[in-house]
Design a binder for these strands. Sequence first.
DNA 1: CTGAAAGCGCTTACAG
DNA 2: CTGAAAGCGCTTACAG
Lengths: 348, 348
Amino acid sequence: MPAVSRPTSKDVAQEAGVSQSTVSLVLGGKWTGRVSPATARSVRSAAARLGYRPNQAARNLRLGTTRTVLLMVPTLTAPFFGPVYTGAARVASRHGFGVVVSTWPDGTEGPDRTGGKGVDSPFAVPDEAIDGVLASSLAVEALGEFRQTPAVMLDSGPAGPSGPYSMPRPPTVDFGVADGMRDIVAHLTALGHRRIGHVAAGVDQWTFRARADALAGALGRVPGSALLRATCAIDAGSARDAAARLLDRADPPTALVCDDDLIAAGAYKAARARGLDIPGDLSVTGFDDVLLATALEPELTTVRLPAEELGAQGMTALLDLLAGRRPPPRVLPGELIVRGSTTPPSSS
Amino acid sequence: MPAVSRPTSKDVAQEAGVSQSTVSLVLGGKWTGRVSPATARSVRSAAARLGYRPNQAARNLRLGTTRTVLLMVPTLTAPFFGPVYTGAARVASRHGFGVVVSTWPDGTEGPDRTGGKGVDSPFAVPDEAIDGVLASSLAVEALGEFRQTPAVMLDSGPAGPSGPYSMPRPPTVDFGVADGMRDIVAHLTALGHRRIGHVAAGVDQWTFRARADALAGALGRVPGSALLRATCAIDAGSARDAAARLLDRADPPTALVCDDDLIAAGAYKAARARGLDIPGDLSVTGFDDVLLATALEPELTTVRLPAEELGAQGMTALLDLLAGRRPPPRVLPGELIVRGSTTPPSSS
DNA sequence: CTGAAAGCGCTTACAG
DNA sequence: CTGAAAGCGCTTACAG
């Protein structure tokens, strides 16, 4: 007997000695000027007494909403998106919303009701109706069939021109990746590094373009500095090979700036294969600060990006949007975490 | 205009020239013997033509269900639960179900609509109604207020006695962890290892008890073998300290069997701090095969547990249960993945 | 074999 | 300031 039977608004009405409409008005917060304060109070206490919770299915049916939001991400395998989902789901659940997730481009991995990372698991876009969408680390074009649905763009860069659609540009929530990269450059150059290798993610996302630009820009302002670049996929093996290309040069860098923590793990492999000590012979930095960063030896100097906060703020913005408000763009700052993978170069 | 307006069963009825009841019967699969095959066919084609999808809110209201399942896990921070969630959510979504997750014990971390791992994020058990629960890596007692709700136990061991509740013991889906551990022992002893250290997770979960028992049992059958044990929390720092205790003994082990991959990362740290080469001076094994296993250097020999499959099979079992069937217990085998962290001992 | 009708629990005009 | 009524889109007895 899963609760003898949940109380309904009719039960509350009876308990309070009013009509169902009054209960709905009061509990829906639309009573001011329409219901007397005394009546409102008694409705509230009756509801509390009975432990009343509105039936969402009935609300949804009546209102034509689904209380379901779609989170679109480029991949389920990166450890970064789990927290984003968690943050989004947390604030969603507080407002009676559910979150389903899908990957884009479609079919590559496919969507689900998830925060999954872990393993690829293809399935199609949710056929259920969606009230809004949160797109993370994707371009506006990814909205596709949802281009008319209220949406918030996460980690996809500040708003560009309104684009080919007639809708206003969606609100944005981003990380301050440029500042984070500048912090890394400041840290490394303060240590004395001048020849810096960039093990760059060969992925067409705003965040990686911003990281590359910020790195080049910041280093360009350091006299006598040099920037070498190798590109890789976001996996340890590909990153190892890219790092190796840099390390095998006649004039190898003394520090490797990696586009994320997993890439840094690949750089560690390349260094070790060459008998190079980190940080003695080579400094390495990551980006994101996922679990891996402290599992590595030495622990990784990296920039912490508040991924869960991104999801939470994004959902808050989307809820605002659904409520008819126009949330302002937000930027969440990253934080440089200095650990054991960076020291002054041995011979500068 | 998010779809000028979705077609309803009434639209399908009109298109097919029948009543709404007939549409419902046919599409609900309850028509045999009640509707002529020809009519059924025309209803189906009308539905397809219109792209009809039933409104879940209406179904739920009518049926009194929520199509929501609760996934309970002990923690959101372990990388293991993301895939479990993903697998569960994937099969759930194919059946129009959503998944919300909560942690148990309650309050420690708290629940959400998630697959999140990442970061702790406390919130209370979902106040929405739940049709069924999936409890992973937890004891039956964790069901608490949901003890009357249809449930499936994941990774919590084979069914014990029916317990204090009047309900029959829930169906189970487990990993073959004992076999996995036996594979590790067979692998290490075949390499020549006899003194083996167990860096054990000091966590009261069936899976860790089973791992410890299987290790002790398998090693007990190897003449001349010795088993040393140190216990730790599941984080790299605590694991490093526990491994250090084993390595600093007068008679240190030649191989460290770690209860999971993150613990193995801690063992790597302890080894490195002592100038011990892995696998030259010390072999190390993990368990789970999460992303970290291949990010480590050398890559980790471990047992792959199909976490996503656990979630998927668990959800399948729960759906069976909700449909009135009684799913049999299932056991998903693990697979030993030999990588670079294990070799014969240098001096046996 | 098929249809008309009730009702799940809400919200919101519409009357008073 | 308050209530009676309609209706969201389904499913399922109940009649025929």
